[in-house]
């Protein structure tokens, strides 16, 4: 236990980052982030590291603080306390635009697409390419095909309104839009929540493509099947606190569920009892 940490809780960064010190510093790190809404403590002293080429799943029950965490990382919410660091440098994410500029792209659950606009128009909305005063449709269309091809997304045409696309295809469009600024971290908020089996598989493929492309990916979900399919690491939130940090390859499903629900193993030894049993680095 580090002496400089005042509270009796187990220290966040030290035990977790120490074994992986050989890796480059995390692209995105949260340190001691807390956020309250009135009397509700949505996040309490949360630490999180996201590395390049890594899919970190954030799981938790309803009201565990997942959405607030997404808000903090995407710049929508400025936390009451705590620090956000990009490649070790503390940053202020004052607004979603700032977060985007710094290389954190967020695909929100509602995707924020305009259904009447076509794929190219949606991809470049607010960032249109122009030739003189008029839009350069050809450059935008070409870039749209390139991005969608990189994601291996099957879209019938980039010139159909988004309203005519399936849920999975729309997710692909939203993710492609997130990639426009070549972000370092992509945050996906419940990307499969409204999708069927096939489309979920499509989206999970997209997530893997993102990782292969070198992005750090934060996948917020409450679907354990999705998480186990693509995540490298599973971080559990419970009542606003970190309640476990598992290696996805070795963690047992029951342990993660126990950490989510607060059942037996997590109850005995404080909020992070599960963690020491699965320290990162032992398995990787």
């Amino acid at each position: 236990m580090n002496p400089h940490v005042p509270s009796p809780r187990p220290t966040g960064p030290a035990p977790r980052t120490a074994p992986v010190s050989a890796r480059p510093p995390a692209v995105l790190s949260l340190r001691g982030v807390s956020q309250s809404f009135g009397a509700v403590r949505a996040l309490v002293d949360v630490d999180l590291d996201v590395h390049a080429r890594e899919v970190v799943a954030v799981v938790g029950d309803n009201g565990a603080g997942k959405s607030t965490l997404v808000g903090v990382m995407s710049g929508v919410t400025v936390p009451d306390s705590g620090e956000v660091m990009l490649e070790g440098v503390p940053v202020q994410l004052g607004s979603p635009a700032v977060a985007r500029q710094l290389g954190i792209a967020t695909v929100f659950q509602d995707l924020a697409l305009c259904a009447d606009l076509d794929v190219v128009e949606n991809l470049f909305l607010g960032h249109e390419v122009r030739r003189g005063p008029v839009l350069d449709e050809i450059a935008m269309e070409r870039e749209a095909w390139r991005l969608l091809a990189q994601l291996a997304a099957r879209v019938p045409s980039v010139r159909v309104p988004v309203a005519t696309l399936s849920g999975g295809q729309r997710q692909a469009v939203a993710i492609a839009r997130a990639l426009l600024g070549e972000p370092r971290v992509v945050i996906l908020d419940e990307p499969t929540a409204a999708l069927g089996v096939t489309q979920t598989a499509e989206v999970l493929n997209l997530v893997e493509r993102l990782r292969d492309r070198g992005h750090g990916v934060v996948l917020v979900s409450h679907n354990m099947a999705d998480v186990q399919a693509v995540a490298d690491r599973v971080v559990v939130l419970r009542r606003g606190r970190l309640n476990g940090d598992f290696d996805a390859d070795t963690a047992r499903y029951e342990d993660i569920i126990a950490a989510i629900t607060g059942a037996s193993p997590a109850l005995s030894g404080g909020s992070r009892a599960a963690q020491p049993r699965h320290p990162r680095g032992e398995t990787s």
């Binding site: 929100f108 924020a112 697409l113 305009c114 009447d116 606009l117 128009e121 909305l125 607010g126 960032h127």
Partner: peptide, 13 residues
């Protein structure tokens, strides 16, 4: 057209 289609999305863009 974007604003008429979905003003929230347009604002967030």
């Amino acid at each position: 057209r974007a604003i008429g289609s979905n003003v929230d999305s347009a604002r967030r863009a």
